[in-house]
């Protein structure tokens, strides 16, 4: 029970919305909605150093996805036991107003799992042996959610920029891309409506210069060859996201 806040009534029901009769503006032969091509990634805007108090921070925006991230560290914390390597602690949270349905203030199981995934995606990239007995704390808040897997991938990209802004030494930047399978085609960067229609979700995070995959997450039925194809397509997407990240970092100084 959350006693720190004044909560609304425990059970509330969303009003039933009248289904709008929107004219379908897709082309008939288009595979995706909004006339997007199969390998189209939504245009990305990243700005580092947006939170003054944090050691490093970044703001990420891609059409309807908005994410903000703050990095604190390396700093000592009760959590980091005496060890010869640093630890990463990550908190991933959807803002209560960010999704279609209101999320609570306390992290639910899915958010805790995503925090663990992000931590695992960055463990190979950060030079933790340079920060013994310290902890690097990463706090990500999703301000607007347009596709959960796409948000996770976007969060990883955003955190890489924030870590660079904090001056934390890394072996390489980590870029991440998401994909889904629509009508047998692998389509990059799905938004919320596309995610709800299909069942397969694919997310890959990759270090472009070292050519190493740091995390892969896939749900939904796929043939083995299709998942291998998805890996290849996501790696290409990560390479192009890397150029955006480089561009943003160079221009910010």
């Amino acid at each position: 029970m959350d006693k720190r806040r004044i909560n609304g009534p425990e059970i509330s029901v969303k009003p039933i919305e009248k289904k709008s009769t929107q004219p379908k503006n897709n082309k008939d032969d288009g595979i995706r909605k909004n006339n997007r091509s199969v390998d189209n990634i939504r245009p990305i805007f990243i700005k580092p150093n947006v939170i003054k108090k944090a050691n490093g921070s970044a703001y990420y925006e891609a059409e309807n996805i908005k994410i903000i991230c703050g990095v604190y560290g390396p700093r000592s914390s009760k959590r980091s036991m005496v060890s010869d390597e640093g630890t990463i602690y990550c908190e991933f949270k959807f803002a209560p107003f960010s999704c279609n349905k209101r999320c609570g203030y306390i992290r639910n199981a899915q958010e805790r799992e995503y925090s663990l995934i992000i931590q695992q995606a960055f463990l190979p990239a950060i030079r933790l042996n340079l920060y013994p007995k310290s902890s690097i704390d990463i706090y990500v808040t999703v301000l607007e959610n347009d596709g959960t897997t796409a948000c996770l991938a976007a969060a990883i990209t955003c955190i890489s920029i924030a870590l660079t802004d904090a001056g934390i030494q890394m072996y390489d930047l980590v870029a991440a891309a998401s994909a889904t399978c629509i009508k047998g085609n692998i389509c990059l960067d799905p938004d919320a409506s596309e995610e709800n229609d299909t069942n397969s979700k694919f997310m890959l995070s990759y270090m472009p210069s070292l050519k190493q995959v740091t995390h892969v997450l896939c749900t939904g039925k796929m043939e083995a060859e299709q998942s291998i194809e998805a890996i290849g397509i996501c790696i290409d997407a990560c390479n192009s996201i890397k150029t955006v990240m480089d561009h943003c970092l160079i221009n910010s100084h």
């Binding site: 695992q120 896939c218 749900t219 039925k221």
Partner: peptide
């Protein structure tokens, strides 16, 4: 033989 889920864990990285 269809892949239903895939997930990586622990702290390392892999070649594609």
């Amino acid at each position: 033989g269809e892949i239903c889920a895939m997930q990586k864990s622990l702290y390392g990285s892999l070649n594609p």
